[in-house]
Design a binder for these strands. Structure first.
Lengths: 343, 343
DNA sequence: TTGTAGGCGTTATCAA
DNA sequence: TTGATAACGCCTACAA
């Protein structure tokens, strides 16, 4: 294990001072003669020199790192976001540092705290936020100590901590999904929600309620069931719903993944989608259009959220003012999992 | 934007020297009196001190970073691996630095090169490798310059660069998949392969051929079709196969994702799975058991690969010798997408 | 048990 | 246009 080749080696090899070598190798705009430049570049190439990001960060007070928290990188929704963030970072010479929080408030705090050691230039909070005042306060404090050091923070969902947001309006998303089945004549509309207390869950539940209210459909708590944001969660939730023996002709699922789980449960129970139950979901991940039947879904692009968040962080780093709340659009994609209510 | 709180501040606050503060804060085993320790810890807490990972890495010559290349973090297979790597890292105080290469050799080189700036303690090559001699040589060189500096490298697939591997035997995996349908009486067995020249693709294709040969089934190139490792790739490939008008009663897909794409294409063409065509895939991601019909698949856990790779890297960092080739097992999961050949 | 001081690789400030 | 040199924040001999 040899010592790494440093700028000192390059300077010596090119017979210039470290200062000169640095000016060239860090492509500063400091004037330097073409011959020296060529000599240094050549020396660096010959020695296969790669600047040390750590040493550089130490003096520049810029790390080139954008940290990203997600609930679970193995969840396709967050994987997409991560990919978008990664791409946007790469395009600007930044690196993404990704960590999963498992929707665990304590872990979220730990993760962000451990990010602090890396003095990231930016932090993107990818997942929804637990709406517990104590947690929000902890989070706020943790974020503040990053902000103070210059880290720009952006959240990809409604966020009670007050950080700038890039997001979709999840209330509107869920309302659109619910109104779609209402427009098809459905009145007994069940709903699979995510775990309560998360911004995303409460917003989507709220959208469901708003849609019902807007059409004078009485709210029936028996039609609402809660589950984890996984396909197993959707499966379980649908089973619970069926076990209740309540009557419903449409089902609004909070995410594609849960919808797919619910689809399996319905199929197992011999309930045809869409003949007996219309199923509508949200997100519209690629998988949603591949299952049978392809899912009607309110579609929005997680990719765009991630990419834009990076964009805003880079802008902020340049000193620009960034908007407090950027709300992206969505679109209903009608496929074969929903149909008009008959009989 | 204030200056970050450094160990100097903590030392001053606790009225000790920086050295003493460091000894406590870096939990070295250097003896230090309980009172001083308490005072320093308290000061650190009060000041909300978090050691600077960059400064620390600079002097320790350990960064606590394990880099990971994947073909695409948004591909569920790699997302699982990433998650496993992340978890294993976190458990030991390491951080994962993840980058997608898009199966582009040039990008792979660029990514690894850019990793070098971070002097990672470990590098995991998550995806299959292009078997082009020139690329392998470039890769080998890039890897060598990391190794020289102490980075431990592990690949998660057969790797012509000679780095230690943690992998499944993809030849055997594909053979098992193919032999399963053979055992069901199928003889006209089509195959959807990944892009050629990748270790994974060639291995799985080889396994398919071996199985045929072992059962005296003639190899028919018309039954082999190539596609991208995406569901769209599987869809296209299946369409191409159908367009050829060749007769087949079983289809071996190289991955679950491709199998799902193929399933859609078959369904669109009015071909029932498994009644008219038996479909078998490899990997067995969660989604494989959720589609209709649930897929028969050769199952192995990407999670295990990732977790073990981290384990080996940490061992190597401790000075242990690590095995050159660790081959993990697999298992055939028979579900409803395959059935005996009738008539 | 504690403190002093040198150095990790880089950039930036100042002089030349 | 170039070159010394002092930081950046931390750890670790070596001294006390």
């Amino acid at each position: 294990m040899t010592r790494q080749v440093s700028i000192v080696d390059v300077a010596r090899e090119a017979r210039v001072s470290v200062a000169t070598a640095s000016r060239i190798l860090s492509n500063s705009d400091y004037p330097v003669s073409p011959e020296t430049r060529a000599r240094v570049l050549e020396a660096a190439r010959r020695l296969d020199y790669v600047p040390d990001a750590f040493a550089r960060a130490l003096v520049r007070r810029r790390t080139g790192i954008i940290a990203l928290t997600v609930h679970d990188i193995a969840d396709p929704y967050f994987a997409e976001i991560a990919r978008a963030v990664e791409d946007a970072c790469q395009a600007d010479g930044y690196r993404a540092l990704i960590c999963s929080t498992d929707r665990d408030p304590d872990k979220e705090i730990r993760v962000i705290r451990s990010f602090r050691a890396f003095r990231p230039d930016g932090l993107i909070l990818g997942g929804g936020c637990v709406e517990d005042p104590a947690h929000v306060e902890n989070l706020r404090r943790e974020i503040a100590s990053l902000t103070v050091r210059g880290t720009r923070v952006v959240a990809l969902s409604r966020h009670p901590t007050g950080v700038p947001m890039v997001r979709v309006d999840n209330v509107a998303v869920a309302r659109a999904a619910t109104e779609h089945v209402i427009s098809l004549g459905h009145r007994r509309i069940a709903c699979i929600c995510g775990q309560p207390n998360f911004t995303t869950s409460t917003d989507r539940f709220e959208g469901y309620r708003q849609a019902l209210a807007a059409h004078d459909i009485p709210f029936d708590p028996d039609l609402v069931v809660v589950g984890w944001y996984t396909w197993a969660g959707g499966y379980q939730a649908a089973r619970e719903l069926l076990a209740r023996g309540v009557d419903f002709s449409a089902l609004v699922a909070s995410t594609d993944i849960m919808a797919i789980g619910a689809l399996v449960a319905l199929r197992e129970a011999g309930i045809d989608v869409p003949d007996r139950v219309s199923l509508v979901s949200m997100n519209d991940l690629p998988i949603a259009s591949v299952v049978e039947p392809p899912l009607t879904a309110v579609s929005f692009r997680g990719r765009d959220l991630g990419a834009l968040a990076v964009r805003l962080i880079l802008d902020a780093l340049e000193g620009q003012e960034i908007p407090q709340d950027t709300v992206l659009g969505f679109e209903l994609k009608v496929r074969r999992s929903t149909r008009p209510l008959t009989d």
